[in-house]
Design a protein around this nucleic acid. Structure first.
Lengths: 183, 183
DNA sequence: TCGCGATGTGCGTTATAACGCACATCCCAT
DNA sequence: ATGGGATGTGCGTTATAACGCACATCGCGA
């Protein structure tokens, strides 16, 4: 969840040393003092976006090169951050929302007979549903659509929508919610 | 392209007013003083990445929402053509790549004993793996990590990485590949 | 008209990002 | 050893990000 501020310095240092650059050289390349660069790499200072941009620009690297959080770490759903809904939905977060990536992802189990109405999200929000097991129905744009295992549906979630399971077995789905770059 | 630092405040203000939020409300949502938010919106102050992260996270918006401008939304279901790899991987596209969303998503089945080495992708590319059935191993940052069903892993894919299945059953996983917003 | 809540901005203070410079260390070549 | 160049870190100063609070303004209803 947290931006992992300590790690952005480590990525910068790795990026720099990988191409054999000195702090002094980088300082001249991007117009940031090498003392500041050293502090950032050691996690003793969090840069402003202005200086981070100067660094990324001077190194010709995308911003996301330094900003992505928690890379290479396995998330084990040990004790459930698992959260049961009143309507019979069991929601398990898979990937927490990350501002740099713009989406979050859940595993959802729909018990038999479950019905969940969802009020519209913010404008531009898009949901992606992948059915893993069982069968479910999605209310989208005024009508119910049936999805079997292996089928997917992408829809605009800034409208009223809902999920239900009228089958005789629980349904397991993945739900990816993507937040827009513009409304 | 230049970051257009003056415009990031305008985008924040537009984002906020579009959903009828007050500075005070946003301040409480993301833990940043409303005075600071006002200054940022007016371009009188450039935030640190820490506060920008707090803002984006509190507003459930991607960082790139304020760093670059974009527009357009498409929502269409995709049909699944299936594609077998030489190494024993069966790759089924779930969601095709969409430039507006910045990612694509596959369902992958790893047959028993399968081994697939992947050369590095472009800088900033991030993969998200979710194990659905069976067990698999991922080579990330110099070491193999084991993932059981229900476990997930996010890693930087601009480095050498690989997948293999040394279990006795086929493994089913989802793979989401996110491409950075280069600048 | 009066007042009251809500909103956004100005102000003084504190925390800290960023700079320039000097110092310590390491690495070679002599 | 020994000196000199290159590298990374510590230190004092300055610029400014960030905070809390108070003030000005704008509806809106009594």
């Amino acid at each position: 969840m947290s931006p992992d501020l300590a790690a952005i310095g480590q990525r910068m240092r790795q990026f720099r040393t990988e191409r054999g650059l000195s702090l002094d050289r980088v300082a001249r390349l991007c117009g940031v003092s090498k003392a500041m660069l050293g502090q950032i790499e050691r996690g003793e200072s969090t840069p402003t976006i202005a200086t981070l941009w100067k660094i990324a620009s001077g190194l010709q690297a995308p911003l996301s090169r330094f900003l992505v959080g928690e890379s290479g770490v396995v998330h084990r759903p040990t004790s459930p951050p698992r959260h049961r809904d009143a309507s019979g939905m069991i929601v398990t977060p898979l990937f927490a929302f990350d501002p740099m990536l713009g989406f979050e992802m859940f595993a959802i189990e729909l018990s038999q007979g479950c019905l969940s109405e969802s009020s519209p999200h913010a404008p531009g929000v898009i949901e992606h549903v992948v059915v893993l097991e069982g069968e479910m129905e999605l209310f989208v744009e005024g009508e119910w659509q049936t999805l079997a295992a292996g089928e997917v549906l992408r829809f605009a979630a800034d409208q009223p929508h809902g999920y239900r399971n009228r089958g005789r077995a629980p349904a397991k789905v993945h739900d990816l919610i993507h937040y827009p770059f513009s409304a």
